[in-house]
Design a protein around this nucleic acid. Structure first.
Lengths: 212, 212
DNA sequence: GTCTCAATCTAAACGTTGTCAAGATGAACT
DNA sequence: AGTTCATCTTGACAACGTTTAGATTGAGAC
C-alpha cells in the first residue's frame, strides 16, 4: 500500500511514477559513474526495480536517453537564461550565452554527452530529437536579432548566424571536454581567459568581445 | 602453410599481419553497418578469426578504436592537404581546409565518429590519443600563419586562433552530421551554399571568405 | 635436421548488456 | 465483488568484452 506523494500529486500505479524515478536514477548513475556506465539495467538497479520494468515507460534504451537529453536541454536553456542578463547590451548577452553553453557542458559532461549521443543515434526521429534544443536555440536567436549583426528580416542569414554560433559553442565545448590545453591555459593565466580568447576568434562571439 | 604476400612483404606469424587485416575489417564493418555495430567480435568475424584473436594485437576494444582513429586522422590530413592548393592565397587555403574538414566528416561519418568517440573515452592516455591530430592541426597552423591574421611570434594568439578554427569546423561537422537543415538548404540553393554561408559567420573562415 | 621457445591463434567460459514473452500483482471502474 | 488493464517480476535469449587454458606453428639455437 503506497500513499500518493502530497508534493508530486496523486500518482498512478504500483510504483508511483516510475518514469520520473528512472530519470532521476539515470541522472545519479551518470554523475557517479559516467556515460559509459549508463545501462538500462544499471538505471533499473539504481531505481530498485527489475531489469524489464523500464520497458513499460520507454520503448528502448535510446528513448530513455532521449528523455534524459530533453531534460538536459531544458536545464541548459534555464542556465543560459539566467546567465544572460536581459538588460545587458546585446553584445554582452550573446557572449554570455556562449560562455554559459560551454560552462554547462563542462559542469555536466556526462549529461552533455548523452544530449548529443542520442542526437547522433536517433536519425530516425529527427523531429522529437531536436525539438528539445528549440528553447535554447530561440534564446540565442533573440539575442542575435538584438545584436543587429544580421537584419531580422533576412531570415536566412539570421538562421545561418545562429547555426554558426551553435557550432562554435558546441565545438568548443567538446574540445574543452576532452583536451586539456593545460600549458596554454597556464600561459594565459587561467581557464576563463583561455575561453574568452578562443571565443574572441569565433565570429559573432568575437564581434561581441571586441567591444569590451 | 602460408606463403608471404609479395606485395605487403614477408609477414611474421600465423595469419600474416592480422593487425592490418583487423583494421581493414573494422573499416568494412564501419562503412557497412555503422559505428554502433563496431564490436570486437564483429571485427574478428569479418576478419575470419576467433573472438579472442584481436587481443594479441590490441589491449582492448578502445585500443582498436584508437588505431582506427589514427588512420582516420591520417586520411583527414591527406585530404586536407590535397584540397588546399599550396599556391593559392592564404585566405582561400584556410577556407579550403575548413570545407575539406567538414566534407571529410560527411563522407565518412562512421570513421569520423570513432575518431572523436575514442578521444572522449581515452582521457587516460591523452598523449597518444591526440598525437594523431597533429598532422592535420599543423597544416592548419601553417595556413593561419600565412594568413597573417595573427602574428606568428605571438605564439599564444596563433594557438588560440587555430583552436578556434578547429572548434568551428568540428562543431559544423557534427551539426551537419546529425541535423538536416533541409529547408534552409533549399532556400539557399544547395548544400555548398549553405556550408559557405555558415562558415562565413565563423571567425577566420568568415574573414577568408569576405575577400571573395 | 631437430628441439625449443615464444608468439600466435582457438576453445570454452564468465559476467554483463539489451530485449522479449509469460505470468503475477493490484488500482480503478462497474 | 469481480473484471480489466496497466504495471512490475521472472526467466530466458543472443550478443558483447574479456580472461583462462590449451593447441598450433614460425624462427632461432644446437
Amino acid at each position: 500500500m503506497k500513499l500518493p506523494c502530497p508534493i508530486t500529486g496523486p500518482k498512478p500505479y504500483h510504483h508511483g511514477d516510475l518514469r520520473r524515478a528512472l530519470l532521476e536514477a539515470a541522472s545519479r548513475v551518470l554523475e557517479r559513474e559516467g556515460p559509459n556506465a549508463l545501462s538500462l539495467r544499471a538505471v533499473a538497479r539504481e531505481a530498485g526495480v527489475s531489469p524489464a520494468a523500464p520497458y513499460h515507460h520507454f520503448k528502448d534504451k535510446s528513448e530513455l536517453m532521449l528523455a534524459i537529453s530533453e531534460e538536459g536541454f531544458d536545464q541548459l536553456y534555464k542556465f543560459m537564461l539566467q546567465s544572460s542578463d536581459a538588460d545587458a547590451p546585446p553584445m554582452e548577452r550573446v557572449a554570455a550565452i556562449g560562455v554559459a553553453y560551454v560552462e554547462f557542458a563542462k559542469a555536466h559532461p556526462s549529461i552533455y554527452r548523452v544530449m548529443y549521443d542520442c542526437s547522433r543515434d536517433l536519425e530516425s526521429l529527427p523531429d522529437k530529437a531536436h525539438k528539445a534544443e528549440d528553447g535554447a536555440f530561440s534564446l540565442l536567436k533573440k539575442a542575435m536579432i538584438d545584436l543587429g549583426v544580421v537584419s531580422s528580416d533576412q531570415e536566412v542569414d539570421l538562421e545561418l548566424a545562429c547555426i554558426a554560433a551553435w557550432c562554435a559553442a558546441h565545438g568548443l565545448a567538446e574540445m574543452v571536454g576532452f583536451r586539456q590545453f593545460d600549458s596554454l591555459k597556464a600561459k594565459m593565466g587561467g581557464e576563463k581567459a583561455f575561453l574568452a580568447g578562443v571565443l574572441s576568434h569565433l565570429g559573432m562571439f568575437g564581434q561581441a568581445r571586441k567591444r569590451g
